[in-house]
Computed example of a mutant assay.
Amino acid sequence: MFAERTRHLNGSDIRAILKMTEQPGMISFAGGMPAPELFPIEEIQEVSQHVLKHHGKQALQYTITEGFLPLREQIAQRMQVKFDKACSPQQILITSGSQQGIELSGKLFLDEGDVVLCESPSFLGAFQAFRLYNPRFIEVPTDDQGMVMEELTRILETTDRVKLLYVIPDFQNPTGRSWSLARRKELMEIVSHYEIVVVEDNPYGELIYEGDSLPSLASLDQKDQVVFLGSFSKILCPGFRVGWVCASPQWLEKYVMAKQAADTHTSTFCQQVIHSYLERYDLEQNVSKIKDVYRKRRNIMLDVMDREFPETALFSKPGGGLFIWVELPAFVNTREVLAKSLEKGIAFVPGGSFYPNGGHEHAMRLNFSNMSEDKIIEGIPRLAAVIRTFI
């Protein structure tokens, strides 16, 4: 009875693992979840009451698909300040999280058999969204500076039907890598010679712990090829599911039509609460507090890993974001490691989930934002002990 496209529909490994982490006493390094103790609950409570008292009839009503205009104006200002991208509110569409922006991109641009280029590894949620449209995934070799441009050029020169390139240039999920400025510029120069859509997913760009932020791909775009996806989930609260698409006016029009068909519009109330929060409170102060906590947790996790992990375990040392990427010897299967570590009360995500074409089962992704310092100090040695039984 199901449509043919559903044969590519698979559940998320992360969601399946998160169900297991609900067991009492489980220490989870699995989800990419913010720390709930950092949510500005009192402030959100205050602005929610303000919105209901002064704008309740509007906040509880339907709104336009594009989203609440005052919030779109605020986002356009943030795009300039935070991502070096000058844009108008008319180039902003409010989405139900940036995940919806990914899904709409697949719906708008992909026909069956089209090619999606992505980093290797990359975000498994994007694979889930794109697979509904039956594309072919080609992984572009990636190092600590970003995609390897020689390989990208070779693929573009020798591959038909390349339609979309999906990238996370800032503190990538799952590796935590950030692209160098040179790679960003080179990418935009290369793709300018092709009819290709660049989807720049940027949920982590503001969570920078060392150094300076780098220009977004959108800011380097000279041909309106970049669709920028942003989100409030990691810098405010994920439960509101408020993100945005920033794109050229002609492309945004199609995104609006696709969203109309999907869910009409994102929650009016949540949009107005975030708008009111941005007016009445200092989001930058909240982000600074988040960064201080996550920086400390990252440092603690890396210190314990340096002491406890075997020398053959190689891991990233990200300058921001939420994740540490670990690669074990090739003969180790981290799905087997996970089964044993769950018995010890420790959860993580096996690395094979982040490769659309499979393989690479010797890697794992660890999250440091969601567990407290004492849980990290307790959990990493337990995980290291399990890993040692496989090496």
Rank of each mutant, 00 (worst) to 15 (best):
Q58C: 10
R161E: 08
V242A: 03
T334F: 01
H193V: 05
V148I: 15
E4T: 10
T65V: 06
P174A: 00
Q49V: 12
L383C: 04
K82A: 09
G25F: 05
S98N: 13
G358D: 02
E103T: 10
Y355V: 09
A363E: 08
E378L: 13
I14F: 09
F109N: 01
T65L: 04
I41P: 01
S88R: 13
S98I: 03
E4P: 04
I190W: 03
V386K: 12
N173K: 12
L108K: 02
L108Q: 01
R15K: 15
I102S: 04
I64H: 12
I346V: 14
Q77M: 11
G146N: 11
I155R: 03
K340V: 14
S12A: 14
F39N: 13
R131K: 14
D221G: 08
E66Q: 14
I235S: 01
W325I: 05
P135Q: 08
V304S: 01
A385M: 09
T266I: 03
D292E: 15
E151M: 06
E22H: 11
E46F: 07
E284P: 07
V227K: 09
L217K: 10
H8D: 13
H275R: 06
F127Y: 14
A35V: 06
C118F: 00
P174W: 02
G379M: 07
N357G: 04
